[in-house]
């Protein structure tokens, strides 16, 4: 039974909130619509989990899936910006690498 107060569920909630805090441009979490929605959902399934025709852990699984999505797409973007290539070198840079100068160096 996945009660909202059990530890893994709360851990997922915290992870979700932390990911949302990193991604959202709004400063306060309380103003974030998604955060409010998530809290609503958690509260909704707090007492009535057993009465719904949902498989055990369904909401928890979905929360974990969403956390996976947020976490890994952020990680992907971070890695991408860190290791992204800068494109081709300019002619001047290439010439400097092998110790040449361009014939018309513009004087400052």
């Amino acid at each position: 039974m996945a009660s909202i107060t059990s530890k893994p569920v709360l851990v997922t909630l915290r992870q979700l909130l932390s990911e949302l805090r990193r991604q959202s441009p709004t400063k306060k979490l309380a103003e974030n619509q998604m955060v409010r929605y998530i809290f609503d959902q958690y509260r909704k399934y707090q007492t009535t989990d057993q009465q719904l025709c949902k498989a055990i852990d369904e909401m928890h699984f979905r929360a974990r899936t969403y956390h996976n999505y947020l976490h890994h797409s952020r990680k992907y973007k971070e890695l991408n910006t860190e290791f992204k290539g800068k494109g081709e070198r300019s002619i001047e840079e290439t010439a400097n690498m092998v110790g040449f100068k361009l014939p018309h160096d513009p004087k400052p």
Binding site: T65, Y66, N68, H72, S73, K75, L79, E82, F83
Partner: peptide
């Protein structure tokens, strides 16, 4: 190698979890 293995792992996980969601 983070820019190969880490990147593909993060990309695939994001894709799969988006699909699943």
């Amino acid at each position: 190698v983070p820019w190969a293995h880490g990147l593909s792992q993060a990309d695939l996980t994001a894709r799969v979890s988006a699909a699943l969601l």
